[in-house]
Design a protein around this nucleic acid. Structure first.
Lengths: 239, 239
DNA sequence: ATTGACTTCAAACAAACGTTTGATTAAAAT
DNA sequence: ATTTTAATCAAACGTTTGTTTGAAGTCAAT
């Protein structure tokens, strides 16, 4: 492996774990077993190294997203694509790109999450120029799929979706109190599926408008196990 | 205003905007117009200052959340509290605590978001010891409200809720491509309401399991305007 | 064998960092 | 009035930061 790749890999691992500002280039070159001047030689400076690391990963996820969206468009042609499938195509690739020694999660959105609040002022803009075009493709597909919903609301819900995804991927390896009880045993793929479900649910219009009291009563009689959940939900959620 | 408070206020503003590691104590003392040694005198070191800043804000949000939950418990007594009201009680206070000169958003979750990925290893644990007890109260209320849903699933959805909330509050002031089209004109309160709606929707069980063909037919008869959206959703979302 | 472009190396650079010192002032207690 | 305690100050501390230097090495083309 050449020096440039060694630096990229080591830097990615460290940046994802601890943030850009909290990793010194001396740590990176030590992990990569290269000379300290190599970073300046191959990338110019630290900011350009960060950009190179993030861009490499975004490109991979972007390609993956593009493929999935292309498949959906072929399959549904002129018909609107189901919301959940759009969300799936957007979220899934972000979970699937782990690299480095630990393999304990996606580096993609850890890096993206850190880009959000980094201290290099120009970096965020440049990164979003890489990230955004594909995201816009997905958004436009959501708008098509939800013609009755105002565009601004679709955009906002998509924004919330990105938010919960980013948070999960940023924090799922860091044990904290809220999640410690539940996610230890689950693998990333299962979490991704649950998240897709959660977000797709968020795109539903408010059930308060949806279910009238009459309907709620109609639904209350106990049915078989998995369906019992529904009446319960309706009852308590919108009573 | 005394020196200690001046430091806390200036530090909070800067930390929320740019992150803990990206703000030097020299910037803080300059903004606060105090001597550089004051931070060590009043707080010991930078890490303790960060903790003091975050704790002050968490306590405020915690008190607010406790009040709202108490009101709900009084109102609903033994009956389960509607999910959306629980979510509201949890999210709303996080949006309502802005301080400093700019008043352009909640510092609470900006600080919390930065705690998630800071470089002081013990800080996260200590902060969560302050944050978690009230969050657990809300979680237990959600579990009560959703008796048919596995506890692990309720916890996870609550975790997703926290995630999207954190992301919105961390990033709503930073213009990026996804949101630039929509949130400029909306105020924080409106965004909070939309987010509450989104998350409450995510707690609905999967409509795929929810709506059997028979039930779906029962629900299809057209009702008043806002409901038209629903059939649309069901059709495309889970066809 | 020698050139020339590319890459790696140890060593050092200035700047910024969090922290500490010891003197000085202000206020309170005796 | 004197002592004690608390708070503020300018100045400096030792580290670490990202970056740069100029020499040494590598390897293919001439």
């Amino acid at each position: 492996m050449n020096t440039k790749t060694k630096i990229l890999n080591s830097a990615e691992e460290l940046f994802a774990d601890r943030g850009f500002e909290n990793v010194s280039i001396r740590e990176i070159i030590t992990k990569a077993s290269v000379n300290i001047a190599a970073i300046n030689y191959h990338f110019g400076n630290k900011e350009e190294l960060i950009f190179a690391v993030v861009k490499r990963r975004i490109m991979e996820v972007n390609n993956n997203r593009t493929e999935l969206l292309e498949e959906l468009r072929v399959k549904y042609q002129t018909k609107p694509i189901p919301v959940k499938k759009i969300i799936h195509g957007f979220i899934y690739p972000a979970f699937m790109h782990s690299h480095g020694e630990k393999k304990n999660g996606s580096h993609f959105l850890k890096l993206m999450g850190r880009i959000m609040s980094n201290s290099y002022p120009n970096l965020k803009t440049r990164v979003f120029e890489v990230f955004d075009p594909i995201a816009q493709e997905y958004l436009s597909e959501l708008i098509k799929a939800l013609p009755q919903m105002p565009v601004s609301m679709v955009s906002q819900k998509f924004y919330f979706t990105v938010g919960s995804m980013a948070h999960v991927l940023l924090n799922h390896t860091n044990p904290d109190c809220i999640k410690k009880s539940l996610q230890g045993e689950k693998d990333l793929i299962q979490i991704a599926e649950d998240l897709i479900e959660f977000c797709a649910g968020g795109f539903n219009p408010s059930p308060k408008m949806q279910v009238t009291k009459i309907n709620a009563k109609k639904l209350t009689p106990k049915t078989k196990q998995p369906v019992g959940l529904r009446s319960q939900m309706h009852q308590q959620n919108y009573a």
